[in-house]
């Protein structure tokens, strides 16, 4: 279904916006196509996760990031294997963007033994340290310290690595963010605060929760801050490239305000949203500002892919996701005695 969206007519303004974007750091057509695939993978993952939840096949609760694919992929495309990310409760996209695969992700969502965390973390705590993902975090702002500390150790150990702290606009209300931004600035740590501003903290609009300008908050510490169209993959990539370059050059932290939108509610059960946002607003973002067709247009215009190829990508990934869901549904649960394992590292 994601593939079909790529063929949907996008508006003139959206096309213009996509064209206007500067090219990013000499990526090859294949790299751009892979970035596109990554966004489609995230969408496919979320669509299936949503289905699993609605069919009551998935325990617990989960938070969809559909609509925010460009910020996850754009930032992670700027990273390499030395780098770390920390993620949020809305973290499936970051996990996929960093290279995680469907089977262990779905297994984790369903609490199965083969999950990334052997079923102990679930949707809100997927960690994939082999791909440099230090984990999603169910405390808003909870990973800001971890990411900044990871940046410290990269600097201390001289790995050349960068740490990306994904956070939502809701985390701007947490005090620890400003404590660690202060230290990041004092010590010029290679950290990027990638703030995905989807404009709602749970069920409340950001205007009701944020005083002043978020960029100025970062700038007050002397942290480089820029606002980016979070629906424009190339714009996110370019901003992330700049931030990574600054970090690797020892110039310190960057704050990226990535304006974006989540198509679903705060969590999958948040169905009736009219009390905090309108259907028209949601439709506008889906029809005009969906990052996947927007970037699909770019690929078509540059002759990197044909419409048929994009459709085929979508279909192949949908099949892959469905196969992984089937696999995860059949996969065994961990043995009951595993509940006592891993409380302590051995």
């Amino acid at each position: 279904m994601t593939a079909r969206k790529t063929t949907r007519k996008t508006t003139k303004t959206a096309r213009k916006a996509a064209r206007k974007t500067v090219d990013s750091a000499g990526r090859t057509p294949e790299q751009l196509l892979e970035a596109y695939r990554q966004m489609v993978r995230i969408r496919a993952f979320e669509d299936n996760a949503n289905e699993l939840y609605l069919q009551a096949k998935m325990p617990g609760l989960t938070h969809m990031s559909s609509g925010q694919e460009a910020s996850a992929v754009g930032v992670c495309e700027a990273l390499d294997e030395r780098d770390k990310i920390t993620s949020t409760h809305r973290g499936h996209g970051h996990c996929v963007a960093r290279g995680a695969t469907f089977r262990p992700m779905f297994c984790e969502l369903l609490g199965k033994e083969e999950g990334y965390c052997h079923g102990k973390g679930g949707s809100m705590h997927i960690a994939d340290q082999e791909n440099g993902n230090l984990g999603a975090n169910a405390i808003v702002g909870g990973s800001t310290g971890i990411a900044t500390g990871a940046a410290f150790s990269a600097k201390y150990l001289g790995t050349g690595g960068v740490a990306v702290c994904f956070l939502g606009d809701g985390a701007l209300g947490q005090g620890i963010l400003y404590e660690v931004m202060n230290m990041a600035a004092l010590w010029k740590l290679p950290v990027i605060y990638a703030c995905e501003n989807n404009q709602y903290g749970e069920y409340t609009h950001i205007d009701e929760m944020l005083a002043g300008n978020m960029l100025e908050r970062a700038r007050a510490f002397g942290i480089e801050a820029e606002e980016v169209d979070g629906q424009d993959l190339l714009a996110v990539m370019a901003a992330a490239d700049r931030a990574v370059a600054r970090a690797r050059a020892g110039e310190g932290a960057t704050f990226l305000a990535l304006k974006t939108y989540r198509y679903f509610g705060h969590h999958v059960g948040d169905i009736n949203r009219s009390y905090y946002r309108t259907k028209e607003e949601e439709e506008h973002w889906k029809a005009e500002r969906d990052p996947i067709p927007l970037f699909g247009e770019v690929l078509l215009e540059r002759g990197i892919a044909t419409a048929e190829e994009l459709t085929a990508i979508g279909e192949a990934i949908s099949r892959e996701a469905e196969e992984a869901v089937e696999y995860a549904l059949e996969a065994p649960y961990p043995p009951a005695e595993a509940a006592r394992d891993h409380v302590y590292a051995s």
């Binding site: 310290g145 500390g149 410290f152």
Partner: peptide, 26 residues
């Protein structure tokens, strides 16, 4: 001062950062 480090008065901040540093090789 690279290994004996004075922090600001920000207990949640420097404890949280220590968690991140400990997760990543120090």
């Amino acid at each position: 001062p690279e290994r004996i480090i004075d922090t600001p008065i920000s207990e949640p901040g420097f404890v949280g950062m220590a968690v991140g540093a400990a997760l990543t090789g120090t």
